[in-house]
Amino acid sequence: MKPGQLLWPYINFSRKIRTMEEFGFKISKSTRIDLDSACQSLYNQIASKVPDIRTCINCGSCSASCTAATFRRTSFRGAILHINRGFDKKAVEFLKSCMLCGKCFLVCPRGIDTRNIILEIIRSEEG
């Protein structure tokens, strides 16, 4: 047996280089909000139809009174905040369990037309 013969089948130099991901490592996606690239088109689109969306003061009355929020993560405040920061998909998640009962509209201290905004968000996802 020539030197190196035994090793040869085990080291295959032509094989694709294995990435660290195969060893259980991964590259995390940045969670940072980059307002330079954030897309606010949905926010602006909704604001042109229901201008109230701009007047939210993030008090949380809507989420606090939400009937669905007791069981599923539901937040009108969270939804419009995330749309403002450009996370439209996340916003839809916040409203998945909404039953359009309208309690948030009743409690909102700024009188924001929550129901119409929710409908706009849901429509945007369907469209």
């Binding site: 940072r32 307002l35 330079d36 993030n58 969270g78 905040l81 996370f87």
Partner: peptide, 12 residues
């Protein structure tokens, strides 16, 4: 930090 979404934020 955007403390309402609990994420760090950057803007130019």
């Amino acid at each position: 930090e955007d403390t309402l979404t609990s994420r760090p934020l950057k803007i130019t």
